[in-house]
Design a protein around this nucleic acid. Structure first.
Lengths: 202, 202
DNA sequence: TGGTTTATGTATCGAACGATACAAAAAGGA
DNA sequence: TCCTTTTTGTATCGTTCGATACATAAACCA
């Protein structure tokens, strides 16, 4: 059952979580391998043996982020009974997560890499894909609302989804600038003020 | 009248404009001095003699950006007669600038530096200051609207300003992800759909 | 013309980068 | 016990980073 060779002396998931926090706080390019080995408290060869290169480790850290942080935010979409409540909860969870103490501000997926040039192209493309996927989740919830009769069939679900996705993106930057939870929640409320006009176009 | 020593062999403002484009496209940290000297077509010593170090050059590039790109966006705030039209124009100019062909997508001030850690702290703080200043400009235009009787005195101008500033921040990321002008304009329209509810709170 | 001043081009600096070579260490299997 | 397998710690690889030293070139001033 136990593996053949010398056993690991560190907790792999705990170390990955520490790496996730460093990437989240500093972004992909600004994080050095020295930062990572220091935070994970392991040597460089252990890191490369366990996770691969820097890009591989970042991809694993993003998966951890999605499971640990993202799930709480995006789970709100499916928990609420109505689309309106789902979007309100989604934005509220976003505001809470982005301003939560003792963890980096904003979203790791939104802020991890922003310039696609250079060697970070594939990483940037992965995050871009995740962001577009998130907007697609918003759209799916809207279309569910259309099927439920909550949203007018003439409503532009793609437009509405992109709007709220864009608001969430912006909240990452505003959160990095120091906005409090209540401040972010005010923005969430303002975004929801457009709801009625958006779901019943004239 | 002419300076004492050997004259420059390059156009200082043109070279600065090229540096601005590189910083804009790749961000502060991902841009290397080799990238800059290649784009500016000057040697490293000429660069350092003319602009100082990398941070100084970035600050000068930001000034150029504000004068060349930002002015068109933020000028819309003061050009329109009503606050509503001013914000609609402001968002439309933003959408147009962020998706304009033959230039980097999104906003240099929003995307230049996002992690304050490391050596880029002062740069990040400068951009953060610019972003908060922009939100303040939005608020001032709203307060003008209050004085004009266009906006209810009970309206939360700080909240409204932060909302539209956040939407603009998000549009930078959405633009980087490839959104077209019409797509960004849809988001701008959606944001304006909240206007009536925001300026006359109940 | 000779002296001063500034800019340019080459060549390179020390530091930090991501990533490994290598040998010792610690486990299981025969 | 000896061999194989895997991990760990040290030391270091070659590259790239931001930033300069230095000699030469090109202007103005006296």
């Amino acid at each position: 059952m136990s593996p053949r060779g010398r056993p690991r002396t560190f907790d792999s998931t705990a170390a990955l979580r520490r790496a996730m926090l460093v990437f989240w706080e500093k972004g992909y390019e600004a994080t050095s391998m020295a930062d990572l080995t220091a935070a994970m408290q392991i040597g460089a060869p252990s890191l490369y043996a366990a996770y691969g290169n820097k890009a591989d480790l970042f991809a694993a850290a993003v998966d951890t982020y999605k499971a640990e942080i993202g799930l709480e935010i995006w789970g709100a979409l499916s928990r609420a009974a109505t689309a309106r409540q789902a979007f309100a909860d989604f934005l509220r969870e976003t505001a809470a997560a982005y301003a939560k103490p003792d963890q980096p501000r904003g979203c790791m997926i939104a802020l991890g890499v922003l310039n696609g040039a250079g060697e970070a192209t594939s990483i940037c493309e992965m995050l871009r894909h995740s962001r577009l996927e998130n907007a697609s989740l918003l759209r799916q919830r809207l279309e569910q609302g259309v099927r439920d009769g909550e949203i007018a069939p003439t409503a532009d679900t793609q437009k509405i989804a992109e709007f709220y996705a864009t608001v969430q993106h912006g909240m990452s930057i505003t959160a990095r600038d120091g906005a409090s939870f209540s401040s972010l929640q005010n923005t969430a409320d303002a975004a929801m003020a457009a709801w009625d006009a958006l779901i019943s176009p004239r």
